[in-house]
Amino acid sequence: MKILQVYRSEPNSDIKTLVGILNRDRDADEFYLNVENPDYDLLVSKIIAADKTVCWW
C-alpha cells in the first residue's frame, strides 16, 4: 500500500510516532506544505499515486 504523509506545519514527536506506525511495511512518501511556494502540481500527483493520504495539522 502507498501512503502519503503531508505536513501543514513542522511535525512534533506525537506525529512522528504515529507516522512511524502508519508507514511500517508500507511504501511511504511525504510532502511539506509549510514552505513559501509549495509545488501543488507535485502534491496532487503524489495524492493521485497514493492509496491513502494523511494531511497533518
Binding site: L18, G20, I21, L22, R24, K52, V54, C55, W57
Partner: peptide, 13 residues
C-alpha cells in the same frame, strides 16, 4: 492509536 489507524479508511487531523 497508531496501530488502530492502520486499518482506517481516512485519518483527518
Amino acid at each position: 492509536l497508531g496501530e488502530a489507524m492502520r486499518d482506517a479508511d481516512y485519518i483527518i487531523p
